[in-house]
Design a protein around this nucleic acid. Structure first.
Lengths: 202, 202
DNA sequence: TTTTTTATTTAAACACTGTTCAATATTTTT
DNA sequence: AAAAATATTGAACAGTGTTTAAATAAAAAA
């Protein structure tokens, strides 16, 4: 059945086409300012067509949401060859922050915008869980090597993730204007390094 | 001019009436799900009337935004009599987290929703700056007493605020389902206490 | 090749949104 | 009581996500 095959390819092609248009609009204008009509005109189709390939706006968003996590995880996975878990942990934080700086819009879609991950069965949710396990694994390894004594690894992991997200979330909303004379990048970097300073004493 | 006086009172009364209706709807339904028609019908007026007292939806939002900060600051100010700056700093974090737990909706309006604080001249922005100065003041005092040696107080302050906001932001989006068997409150509390543990060593 | 069936696309419609504005009602001043 | 100022309204505008009946394009069967 060569025709059925090509049909499937066509469908995937259109799926990708919509997603490409959507990515462009989403990352340029943000969630709220992205409309189905916007996406449709970006790829020169009528708004209704999209609904032949996607259930709704949310489904498109979720695909991009997943993309963002895959991109982040691929950058984190590079650090697995570092060896020392504490060095890897510290580097992971830097990678995370750099990811947020370089992919502000993705970061917004992934962690800030409200639509995301309504049901804990979604694929984007599973991949987020993977990221948390990744962090928790490192913390546990650190503890095996004598770091973070008498600390519950789960709470400690949650705390570390909170620091990273806090830094990046404030960045994404540029709420850091109160620290005059310091750029966002300086704040994020030096803020994180002062946290690393604390970690090294613990 | 007793009449002009009453006129002014009437105007303030209506202003408050709208704000009360808006608060009810905003805190119950969130920013996106709150519409001008929603607010209007809550107080049995036509949607257009609101525009006689408020420039737009954003202006109403900003008043509530400010309210939230005033509420938070009033709770923080209580801690000024603590005396020891480090104890006050630790307690401030707990108060902040508790505020987020008890006023999840306010917290969302204050720190998460995108509309907020577009211009750095707004009153809500000034009060946010006050909160940051409050934190920075404590950190500086701590350093005078020998804590946080060799740390830049501004970056250190930013880092502490990031931890707090990170914890609360994750809470507000209930992204913490990955830590099974632990309630949000446990996560926030114990996550923060493990950070305090780090602070005590620094 | 022509007809029938299926797949894809579209324009129009629905119920919503924030906001504006001319018309109306109310109140105050003359 | 008439005129002027103030307050309120409902309709309208341009936008939103989504549904759906109709139109078109493509494929299969005759």
């Amino acid at each position: 059945m060569g025709i059925a095959e090509r049909k499937l390819e066509d469908k995937q092609e259109m799926h990708a086409k919509i997603l490409n248009g959507a990515r462009k609009v989403f990352l340029a204008k943000g969630y709220d300012q992205t409309s189905m009509r916007n996406i449709a005109s970006e790829i020169n189709y009528s708004p209704g067509s999209i609904y032949f390939y996607f259930k709704d706006k949310s489904e498109i968003f979720h695909e991009l949401h997943k993309e963002g996590f895959q991109l982040l995880l691929s950058q984190l996975k590079v650090l697995e060859k570092v060896g020392d878990p504490f060095e890897q942990l510290k580097a992971s934080g830097r990678v995370f922050i750099q990811f947020a700086q370089e992919n502000k819009d993705y970061y917004n879609l992934m962690f800030i915008v409200d639509d995301s991950v309504k049901d804990s069965a979604s694929e984007g949710f599973k991949i987020a869980e993977e990221a948390i396990r990744y962090m928790h694994g490192m913390v546990t390894e650190c503890q095996l090597k004598g770091k973070f004594k008498n600390m519950d690894t789960e709470y400690f992991t949650f705390m570390i993730i909170s620091v990273l997200h806090g830094i990046c979330a404030l960045f994404c909303k540029h709420r850091n204007t109160s620290f005059v004379g310091k750029t966002d990048e300086e704040l994020m970097h030096n803020g994180y390094e002062s946290f690393v300073g604390l970690l090294e004493k613990g």
